[in-house]
Design a protein around this nucleic acid. Sequence first.
DNA 1: TGAACCTGTTACCATCTTGTGACCCATCTG
DNA 2: CAGATGGGTCACAAGATGGTAACAGGTTCA
Lengths: 224, 224
Amino acid sequence: MKALIVDDDLALSDVVSFTMRRAGFDVITAHDGRSALERWEAEDPDIIILDLNLPKLDGLSVCKSIRDEGDTPIIILSVRGDEEDVVKGLELGADDYIVKPFSPRQLVARAEAVLRRAKSAPVTPGPMSAGDFMLDPARNDVRIGDDDNIQLTQLECRLLEVLMLNSGQVLTSASIIDSVWGSEGADRVMLKQLVYRLRRKIESEPSEPVHLITISGVGYSFEV
Amino acid sequence: MKALIVDDDLALSDVVSFTMRRAGFDVITAHDGRSALERWEAEDPDIIILDLNLPKLDGLSVCKSIRDEGDTPIIILSVRGDEEDVVKGLELGADDYIVKPFSPRQLVARAEAVLRRAKSAPVTPGPMSAGDFMLDPARNDVRIGDDDNIQLTQLECRLLEVLMLNSGQVLTSASIIDSVWGSEGADRVMLKQLVYRLRRKIESEPSEPVHLITISGVGYSFEV
DNA sequence: TGAACCTGTTACCATCTTGTGACCCATCTG
DNA sequence: CAGATGGGTCACAAGATGGTAACAGGTTCA
């Protein structure tokens, strides 16, 4: 998750950045309105923490511009006494606001709440099956036939999910990496390692895999 | 959904009523503190929009009375400069507040957010059961099978409530925190601690839980 | 006032996860 | 044949994660 922090008060900006980083966000910062828009376009963050009082281009204009061209969730930072601007901001489509001074915890809680609301689509990743495999992405586990459930790590689970979704098809390493690691990216070595670890859990003879098949020079394929 | 609007400013009251009606609420109104309590008892609304500045019986007293006898969600309307009273109101158990002037959109959004929160952890004090567990949210206690009742703290009770309501499903830490702590927020450490304390009360072998299950990297799940 | 309790905080520890480097083998190629 | 390439296997370490415990401030209640 990537957060864009926009605040011209450097001290506060640092506090906010630190808080968000500790909560697991990648943080980008901007200190005036114009650069905020630039960073937004360049980095495509998942959420924006936006101070209203900005040099060069005020927060409300930033808010409006972003809403005109996209739907990145926005949380407004306002000082007490600024209620009018907050209302304008919310009317412009901001998702929530926090009045300074605020507790770091509140900030994180609101950010996560807004994000959860925004991506309400992939809510219930219901169990899926392919052949003998029953995968439950919510629980990170898989059951093969009538055996006991096998606990997977998150990465293993996402890898198996991608493969099972495209059962029988050959997926290139690049596309698998894209699906599993997302925008962060990863190299082939990491995928190789992950495949190895997953095989040890789901293949009865890991050195002679029958489900997670290597297509040399291309990628991998899941066979039932 | 039934909303009780309490405001002595008739013009504003009309605006609020109209907004809420348009959003699909049935609206009841009251214009002073005393009649507010009467309407509340008579109509049992799902949510209350409460102005603090009221004749006959001020908003904070109304808030307190309602909280003493029930748990209908309350959103406080306050004017600028009233922050002290807002804080008092929140301490008395109000669920959220809005500073005038506010946008209709904001009002509806907040009302729905509060209701969503209330629904996900319904404080409606009806006893509920899941498997061997009989939880009484009104009493903050739980009975497992034929054992003696176990007294819980408020937080423990709300946690168990949320989990039992979604028995068998995996809940993420963030959503649990949202349901248990509400807008105040909390971090994962606090949840971890709460889970630990609850387990010591409801699990016969707290170090090997069979009901309150950890889904590593995701959250927790209640299993019967 | 004082005791009991609730809850947030900090600390410590064990375990798990995951990225990284190393090494091996098979295959391909000049 | 020598070297390059792709892939499997293993071990290690930093960091994340979660369970446990002790403590402190605050509240409640007698």
